[in-house]
């Protein structure tokens, strides 16, 4: 995505399978025995496509994404298979996973303020990501960073690069997180509730930006959210999760027009509809 990047840019073939997750189970030990927070999840992401993972809090959405990154919290173990471009990720050591993180798979988190280190300038935090994988001089990394900030439409990027996270608004911070994730041109971008902490107008801008960048770079995306309205805007395929299990999987069209599972129907029925003023909330369980 950046012109000064010394790396050869491999444009992913649209429609080729980028990520293949099979029978993914994530287990945490508790005093009452092991608990499976994700049970037997299987899905795939095609290059250039977006998979929306939908579910309530605690449904295992975030754990699924952390398992792909190899960043499960202490004690968590993942079994099954996660293949990126045909290469198995679960068997890799932490050292090998480090080369995948950021470079092949990048992540954007929910709360951009707490996700940025308050002690360092945003420029330094983006440079750091770039240099961890590409090395090179700080000057080059800084140029890449400024370009990345311009791409996510931070005005006056060459000056703002030296500002600290608290000097930006919520929406701008999320743009910065996106710039950080995309400066390495990852094959897969995992966005974990990227718009939840933002107000609706800013949310729309961020979604638009993500879609635009995705079109330009051909990055595959996993978009995690509890917001069905957002999923309907961004996703090609949808995976619905509940209590760690996948309830339903299909194209966005299928899920929204012909939901099969009772839970999916209940979720959709819970959406407020503008054309039904006397709508009442229906049970979801």
């Amino acid at each position: 995505m950046s012109i000064t990047s010394p790396r050869t840019i491999s444009i992913p073939v649209p429609g080729a399978t980028l990520l293949e997750v099979e029978h993914l189970t994530v287990t945490f030990p508790t005093s009452a025995g092991p608990v499976e927070v994700v049970q037997d999840a299987s899905f795939r992401v095609e290059a250039g496509d977006t998979l929306g993972i939908v579910g309530e809090s605690g449904s295992g959405k975030s754990m699924t994404s952390l398992a792909i990154m190899g960043l499960l919290p202490r004690g968590g173990t993942a079994t099954g298979s996660i293949r990126l471009n045909g290469h198995e990720l679960l068997a890799r050591s932490d050292r090998e996973m480090r080369r995948v993180r950021g470079d092949k798979v990048a992540m954007v988190f929910q709360d951009p303020l707490s996700s940025l280190n308050p002690y360092y300038t945003v420029g330094r935090q983006i440079e750091e990501a770039y240099r961890a994988h590409n090395g090179g001089s700080r000057k080059n990394a800084r140029n890449v960073t400024i370009e990345a900030l311009e791409r996510v439409r931070i005005a006056d990027a060459s000056r703002r690069v030296d500002h600290y996270p608290h000097q930006f608004s919520g929406g701008m911070r999320q743009r910065i997180m996106i710039a950080m994730a995309l400066c390495l041109e990852p094959d897969l971008l995992i966005a974990d509730e990227p718009t939840t902490a933002l107000d609706v107008t800013v949310q729309a801008q961020i979604l638009e930006l993500l879609a635009e960048l995705q079109r330009e770079t051909g990055t595959g995306m996993i978009f995690i959210t509890h917001d069905l309205a957002v999923v309907s805007q961004v996703a090609d395929d949808v995976l619905v999760m509940k209590d760690g299990r996948q309830v339903e999987r299909g194209t966005a069209e299928q899920i929204f027009s012909r939901p099969q599972a009772q839970y999916t129907r209940a979720l959709l029925a819970a959406l407020p509809r503008i054309d039904d003023p006397f709508d009442r909330l229906k049970g979801t369980s």
Binding site: L71, R99, A106, F109, D111, S114, L116, N117, E128, A132
Partner: peptide, 29 residues
Amino acid sequence: GQNFMRTARAKGLDAPLVLRRHALRPSLT
């Protein structure tokens, strides 16, 4: 336990660097 530590790891930084650069300064200030 801060979120920015997760971000640092998600960038692909190695563990000692994450600790040195991202954990030390907020902890020692």
